[in-house]
Simulated scan of single mutants.
Amino acid sequence: MPTGKVKWFDNEKGFGFLASDDGQEVFLHANALPAGVSEVKVGTRMEFGVADGKKGAQALSVRILDAPPSVAKSSRKSAADMAVIVEDLIKLLEHTANGLQKGKYPDKASGSKVAAVLRAVASDLDA
Rank of each mutant, 00 (worst) to 15 (best):
M1N: 10
T3E: 03
K5I: 12
F9V: 01
K13M: 04
A19C: 05
S20L: 12
D21E: 06
D21R: 03
D21M: 04
D21W: 02
D22M: 07
G23K: 01
G23M: 01
L28A: 03
L33E: 01
P34R: 02
A35R: 15
G36C: 01
E39M: 13
K41Q: 13
V42E: 08
T44Q: 00
F48A: 02
A51R: 10
D52K: 11
K55R: 06
A57H: 03
L60C: 03
S61P: 04
S61G: 11
V62S: 03
D66N: 15
P68M: 01
S70I: 02
A72I: 00
S75Y: 09
S75T: 06
R76E: 02
K77N: 08
M82E: 01
I85A: 07
V86F: 06
L93A: 12
E94D: 12
G99T: 06
L100E: 10
L100W: 04
Q101N: 08
K104Y: 06
K104H: 08
P106G: 15
P106Y: 13
D107T: 05
D107H: 13
A109M: 14
G111D: 08
S112L: 13
V114R: 12
L118C: 03
R119E: 05
A122G: 00
L125C: 04
D126F: 03
A127E: 00
